[in-house]
């Protein structure tokens, strides 16, 4: 008799979203894009063409804002989902 295959455990979408955003933000920080945010005040980045500096700076700002707002929301939504699934499974028993 074939053994019943265990369903693959996957991270919930909310947790995946949160981890992805935080990982990208960490990478942006590790690559030094934080210093590119000086373009917000119109200050050039030494040795970097203006367009690249604006792109890098805005990328960092967007990722940072996502990391401090959307990622926590996604994580909490995932926790709420996990909690409600757990409550439902308990009530079935």
């Amino acid at each position: 008799m074939k053994e019943k295959e265990e369903p693959k455990r996957r991270l919930s979408p909310g947790i995946q979203i949160a981890l992805t955003i935080w990982a990208l933000t960490f990478l942006a920080h590790a690559f030094g894009l934080r210093d590119f945010t000086s373009v917000l005040s119109g200050t050039p980045v030494v040795g970097v063409p203006q367009e690249a500096a604006v792109l890098g700076g805005m990328t960092y700002v967007v990722l940072w804002l996502l990391a401090t707002s959307i990622a926590p929301v996604a994580l909490v939504a995932a926790m709420l989902g996990i909690s409600s699934d757990w409550v439902r499974s308990r009530s079935r028993h």
């Binding site: 909310g14 707002s69 929301v73 909490v76 939504a77 709420l80 989902g81």
Partner: peptide, 16 residues
């Protein structure tokens, strides 16, 4: 799911 994200946003965003 929409409700879950809405509730999460209502909890998290004003708390940042």
């Amino acid at each position: 799911m929409l409700l879950r994200y809405g509730l999460a946003a209502a909890l998290v965003l004003p708390s940042i």
